[in-house]
Design a protein around this nucleic acid. Structure first.
Length: 885
RNA sequence: GGGCGCGUAGCUCAGUUGGUUAGAGCAUCCGGUUUACACCCGGAAGGUCGUCCGUUCGAGUCGGACCGCGCCCACCA
């Protein structure tokens, strides 16, 4: 019998999944088919930075998802065909490490299960986490194209990788070479420069004597300084600076390497600092990047003494053979000490390379690897940014990009891993074959290594659209519009996409790169699981434990028990993340999320209010809307039309310019500060049943507001959209009207601003004079610029009634004059004397200050005329107010 | 060592091309309301804009130095 009552409060936990279902059922989450009638319709596409399939999403993904979805939704409502490619990255080392850990916990290992079984295991891991990640994007409300989900190792993608590798090989840009690489003993693989991070370490700087073969001018030895004595077995020379008076004379002489007996020439090289260490540098090309360079300059063959297992090798000193580098260091130092060759040791703080992946100390060593030559690829990537075909925001990141590309070095492509794209090269004795398929014939063996993950990521914008096939998708959606990303992968990923896009897809991969904030924990540290500073976005959306660093403070500034996050809902989380974002790093602020929740509730309530007013009205009222031809006549109606039109433009422009914080906060200000606090309050006295404009203006203003808020808070707006009587269809696919200048009404804006000022002045006076807000006070309005309509609008909210009655009164200044509130039960002019005197003092001070400025000849002669005029007008106004007091 | 950025109310942040009374949200304080909303409404208080020097009629805004903090890049053993 009874209808289900509308829930008294909007509940995101209930509404959001329901709304998402509607989008899904209506096909919003799949790229719309091309309209045959509009074959040239504009398109707008984004390729999501594919998250690693190593775990769940974090705050950065949630922020980036909110950003991209805002852009996608805005452009969808503009009538463009949008494509937001969703997908995940296989993330070579990262994923392999996780799976290996899991195997170890099960008491087995990668080696024990073998390559094939390991890959199967990793595939199922990927299925599981990939699914989780996609589910999280859906929960956040991301309107991506889930039907075309991609993975960097799916079938089509493999073809793209093979094709690009083979092409680059044939063009001579990919080559195999023996070179010094960053060896990560943890993952047992070479890694690129970008995967290395420097950490400060305290080591010991040892000084070691190398005897001269033949004494020179009484010298019998040189003393070298090193923090890595274990590498000395691979020394090929000792270098001194040719300008160094102490040692220049030794250049050309020979020293004998302890333990090994190798004769090492003393060479001169400018690289050696005369004021550091001992001034003598041992040269170990196989295990130090500097020494490698110096060795090359002087034509020395590197001598490998540390193997890929991190143990001493080479057989130069049997007593150390097979020791780990750490053991070897101890043993060598002890042996040197014993035979008196250790001349000094002191603590030494310096930066040391570590693997970002395994956390182990990098072992530089000579290794046979695949490399990619970068300079030819880099130049076009530099050019397109220089000439603006790719715009990087903010501009400071553009400088980083250009600087890095300007000094680019070869890229180590091969990884000694199993999880990834296996290198498409086969060997048979001295023969090498590179191709997309195995060569004909017997005896070929495929290179066991895989490619750096970022090689496949670099193809993402076009490989996800079907390349190397010339698909319709590729034609329609490449280049993509925007790449939104954290700036820490600007080199690792962004620059490489530009290079590969230009090389293989004949165009830039995206027109704009937006580098968003990194969200830090409230204490300024990185958000990270291991530090306990991370938050699962779902814990904010659906409620969950609040980590300790996010505990709120009580009045005394002490931390409270962290407790749980309330279920803020996806809209609130999106709003909050966008509101706190900027072009630089920001601290996470739960208050901003809470602010989003308030906006969501407020909007929902406003729509309930409007729906109540619109109940029972015909379509000519509820859907007629407002156009330039049908502008309403009343002041507050013209005002809200003008303001709504304005905020709609501003918000869209801010999203277009990637100023998401201003877009979000601007919406909040509008909804609270204009729509609800003023417009809805101003129209409460009107009856939509008899008032010809109210219904259509109210419905129009709310629909426009919901539309423009939709990119930021899609769920509540979609839900509310359906609750406005007369609504048809989904908000998500509704069409944004073109901006129309004729809806902007400056006269209405200033006229209503006066009304607001008047009401605010009276309220403020009341509060200060301890007059209760309720009673209606008879008052005289002695001011210019208030017509009958303005007066009628102001009086109910100011809770005054206008009269011409004479009598004692309290004077309150308002724009254009004053309002005189008659003495009465609540109003005692005598009690106002002190307030009046205080105000008089303030005004006099201001007049004095301004007049002093105007008396300053330099000011009057040099300041622009309008500034001076404004000053004069100010004095005038202040004098008027003073006279009225 | 080089580069970039930050320091504004108790907290998190806005502050256009310099224009004279520096804003918002949250928190605080005061006062209300129960047919849109207590996840509410109205009002108030709160800042020597990190420090110093300079440019200017005028500096939160421009320049310099310094202090504090963060990030990125870098091959001093």
């Amino acid at each position: 019998m009874s209808e289900t009552p509308e829930p008294s409060r909007y509940e995101p936990a209930e509404a959001e999944p329901r709304v998402f279902e509607r989008w899904d059922a209506a096909g919003v989450l799949t790229t719309a088919a091309a309209d045959p009638d509009q074959p040239d319709a504009e398109t707008f596409s984004i390729a999501i930075p594919p998250p690693n399939v190593t775990g769940a999403l974090h705050m950065g993904h949630a922020l980036n998802g909110s950003i991209q979805d805002a852009l996608i939704r805005l452009n969808r409502m503009r009538g463009k065909r949008v494509r937001w490619t969703i997908g995940t990255d296989h993330a070579g080392i990262a994923t392999q490490t996780k799976v290996e850990q899991a195997l170890v916990e099960e008491g087995t290992s990668r080696e024990q299960v073998g390559r094939e079984a390991f890959l199967e295991r990793t595939q199922s891991w990927r299925q599981q986490y990939g699914g989780t990640i996609i589910g999280q994007f859906r929960r956040l409300g991301c309107s991506g194209d889930y039907a075309h989900e991609r993975f960097t190792m799916d079938e089509g993608y493999v073809q793209a990788v093979l094709k690009t590798f083979v092409a680059l090989y044939e063009q001579g840009l990919i080559y195999r070479d023996t070179y010094l690489v960053n060896w990560d003993p943890g993952s047992q693989s070479a890694i690129s420069d970008l995967e290395v991070e420097d950490r400060e370490e305290t080591d010991t700087l040892f000084e070691i004597a190398y005897p001269l073969k033949d004494p020179v001018e009484g010298l019998t030895e040189v003393v070298v300084a090193t923090v890595r004595p274990e590498t000395m077995l691979g020394d090929v020379a000792v270098a001194v600076n040719p300008q160094d008076e102490r040692f220049a004379k030794l250049i050309g002489s020979t020293v004998v390497l302890p333990f090994v007996g190798r004769e090492l020439p003393i060479i001169g090289d400018d690289y050696v600092k005369t004021d550091f260490g001992t001034g003598c540098l041992k040269i170990t090309p196989a295990h130090d990047p500097n020494d490698f360079e110096i060795g090359n300059r002087h034509d020395f063959e590197p001598i490998n003494v540390i193997g890929e297992d991190g143990r001493i090798t080479g057989g130069f000193a049997p007593q150390f053979e097979g020791l780990s580098t750490a053991e070897a260091r101890t043993a060598i130092v002890e042996a040197l000490r014993a035979n008196g060759a250790l001349r000094g040791e002191e603590p030494y703080v310096h930066t040391v390379p570590f693997s970002q992946r395994s956390g182990e100390r990098i072992e530089p060593l000579i290794s046979l690897q695949w490399f990619m030559k970068m300079d030819q690829l880099a130049q076009p990537a530099i050019d397109v940014v220089r000439d603006g075909r790719v715009r990087i925001h903010p501009a400071s990141q553009q400088k980083r990009y250009l600087d890095w590309l300007g000094e680019i070095r070869p890229w180590v492509l091969s990884r000694q891993l199993w999880w990834g794209h296996q290198i498409p090269v086969w060997y048979r004795n001295d023969e090498v074959y590179c191709g997309t398929e195995a060569p004909e014939g017997e005896g070929w063996e495929r290179d066991p290594d895989v490619l750096d993950t970022w090689f496949s990521s670099a193809l993402w914008p076009f490989a996800t659209l079907g390349w190397p096939e010339q698909t319709q998708d590729l034609q329609d959606f490449y280049p993509t519009a925007v790449l939104s990303t954290a700036r820490d992968i600007l080199f690792l990923w962004v620059a490489r996409m530009v290079m590969m896009g230009l090389r293989f897809a004949d165009d830039v991969p995206f027109k704009d790169v937006y580098c968003h904030s990194v969200i830090q924990a409230p204490d300024g540290r990185r958000m990270s699981k291991s530090l306990g500073t991370g938050i699962d976005p779902l814990a904010l959306i659906d409620g969950g434990p609040r980590p300790e660093v996010f505990a709120k403070k009580n009045k005394n500034g002490k931390l409270q028990d962290p407790g749980e996050f309330p279920a803020y809902g996806a809209d609130a989380v999106r709003f909050g993340l966008l509101a706190m974002s900027s072009t630089q790093d920001v601290r996470f602020s739960e208050e901003k999320i809470a602010q989003g929740k308030q906006l969501v509730t407020k909007l929902s309530n406003a729509v309930r209010f409007a729906a109540g007013r619109l109940e029972g009205l015909g379509l000519e009222q509820t859907v007629a809307g407002v156009t330039a031809e049908t502008l309403p006549t009343r002041l507050e109606d013209r005002w809200i039309v003008s303001r709504t039109e304005q905020i709609a433009r501003e918000t869209a422009a801010r999203i277009d310019e990637f100023d998401f914080a201003k877009a979000a906060l601007g919406l909040y200000d509008f909804v609270y500060g204009e729509l609800c606090d003023w417009y809805l309050e101003l129209v409460k006295g009107r009856d939509a049943q008899t008032d010809p404009d109210l219904g259509r203006v109210l419905a129009w203003a709310l629909r426009r507001t919901l539309q423009i808020a939709h990119p930021v808070i899609p769920f509540v707006t979609e839900d509310a959209w359906a609750r406005i009587p007369g609504t048809d269809g989904l908000l998500a696919t509704s069409r944004l009207p073109e901006p129309d200048d004729r809806l902007i009404d400056p006269a209405a804006e200033t006229g209503l601003a006066r009304v607001i000022d008047l009401i605010t002045a009276v309220r403020s006076w009341r509060s200060g004079a301890n007059v209760p807000p309720g009673p209606i006070l008879p008052s005289r309005l002695v001011a210019d610029g208030y017509d009958d309509e303005a007066r009628a609008l102001a009086t109910p909210l100011a809770r005054i009634t206008l009269t011409d009655d004479a009598g004692d009164a309290v004077t309150v200044p308002v724009p254009g004059g004053q309002i005189e509130i008659l003495a009465g039960e609540h109003v005692d002019p005598e009690a106002e004397r002190a307030r009046r005197e205080k105000r008089r003092g303030e005004i006099e001070q201001q007049i004095a200050g301004t007049e002093k400025r105007l008396a300053n000849e330099k000011f009057v002669s040099r300041a622009p005329a309008d500034v001076i005029a404004a000053e004069r007008a100010k004095v005038e106004a202040l004098r008027e107010e003073l006279a009225a007091l």
